[in-house]
């Protein structure tokens, strides 16, 4: 079994709500996979099924060759988890958390080394109840690394982290990936995913919209490099749209903004501007970010809706869980 994660036709319902609808996903060993989607898309539910926190309604999930329902303990022996909505024990210290993880995983890590690695050495002997969100998240990261897991499952790992913490997180993901660890990195934050992931899957409303490399997604979604040109006098936008390889051209804020499919097109466009008799004042290029792709694939309004929902719901992914509460 080469795939670290194999999800087949996964469906999960909470009462009348369908959280995951026919999800298929395979992630080969050693890959850093970004699981991207707005809040409420079903990312956490997918992870909850992988860890047997919730039972699938239908479908099969295999992690590291083990069945997620029947062999969950074997999975969790080899997986490091930083789940969304987890809480530390307020009355236990950071070190005690790491020691507990070491004991329960039967690992032989040095707690001090792990605590240093996530930047928690100084606060290690204080009760976790006094930690900030960022400190808790750092400790959670350290706990997930106990026992040198073959697979790291991170659900919104950057939440609450300051820029330093985010850098630590990225370093750790890269180091672990270099040592052959598979990383499943779920986030609604595109920058996070773009920075570390080999491949990205976009999930929305329980359905997988696309899986590809970041570059591949860009290509597939037809998103182009954007060229902004400042010239005097400003050439007519319509005339320049005939240039080969140029998608759309428009005048915005006294500048020309053109979508170009590749680098050659940019040169052709700049030449066309000069040939029109205008003097080139300045130009800059923008690479389409994953955010643009993301917005293009899930639809901008959906993201805003979901974001608004997430403000009133502490765990939007699992909103409907409390069906019989």
């Amino acid at each position: 079994m080469d795939d670290a994660i194999s999800i087949q036709s996964l469906r999960k319902e909470y009462g009348d709500t369908v959280a995951i609808d026919g999800l298929d996903l395979s992630i080969p060993s050693g890959e850093v996979f970004g699981f991207l989607g707005p809040n409420g898309a079903g990312k956490s539910t997918t992870i909850d099924v992988m860890l047997n926190y919730v039972r699938p309604t239908a479908g099969a999930v295999t992690i590291l060759g083990y069945d997620a329902v029947d062999e969950s303990k074997a999975i969790r022996r080899r997986v490091g988890v930083l789940s969304d909505g987890y809480a530390l024990y307020d009355r236990l210290t950071g070190r005690e958390h790491v020691e507990l993880a070491i004991e329960l995983k039967g690992a032989d890590d040095d707690p001090d080394r792990l605590l240093r690695r996530v930047g928690m050495a100084d606060a290690a002997d204080r009760p976790a109840g006094g930690y900030s969100k960022g400190m808790s998240q750092r400790l959670g990261l350290g706990v997930a690394l106990v026992g040198s897991p073959d697979l790291l499952v991170f659900d919104e790992p950057a939440s609450g982290l300051d820029p330093n913490g985010v850098r630590t997180l990225r370093e750790i993901v890269r180091e672990e990936a270099d040592s052959g660890t598979t990383v499943f990195f779920s986030s609604h934050d595109l920058d996070q995913v773009e920075a570390v992931c080999d491949r990205v899957g976009i999930l929305n409303r329980g359905e997988l919209l696309a899986v590809d490399t970041v570059d591949g997604l860009r290509e597939r979604l037809g998103a182009a490099t954007r060229l902004c040109v400042d010239a005097v006098p400003l050439p007519d936008a319509d005339r320049l749209s005939n240039v080969e390889g140029v998608g759309s051209v428009a005048a915005e804020d006294g500048r020309l903004v053109a979508d170009c499919t590749d680098g050659e097109t940019k040169f052709r466009l700049l030449s066309a501007v000069r040939e029109s008799g205008a003097t080139l004042v300045d130009f800059e290029t923008e690479t389409a970010s994953l955010e643009d792709l993301f917005a293009a694939s899930v639809g901008g309004s959906d993201i805003e809706d979901s974001a608004a929902r997430s403000d009133v719901n502490a765990r939007p992914d699992d909103g409907p869980v409390e069906v019989d509460a």
């Binding site: 860890l51 303990k73 969790r76 988890v81 789940s83 987890y86 809480a87 024990y89 706990v143």
Partner: peptide, 14 residues
């Protein structure tokens, strides 16, 4: 309710 179990059940315990 607190989420402690989400931490604890991330470990190989039944």
């Amino acid at each position: 309710r607190s989420g402690n179990l989400r931490l604890l059940l991330g470990f190989p315990v039944s």
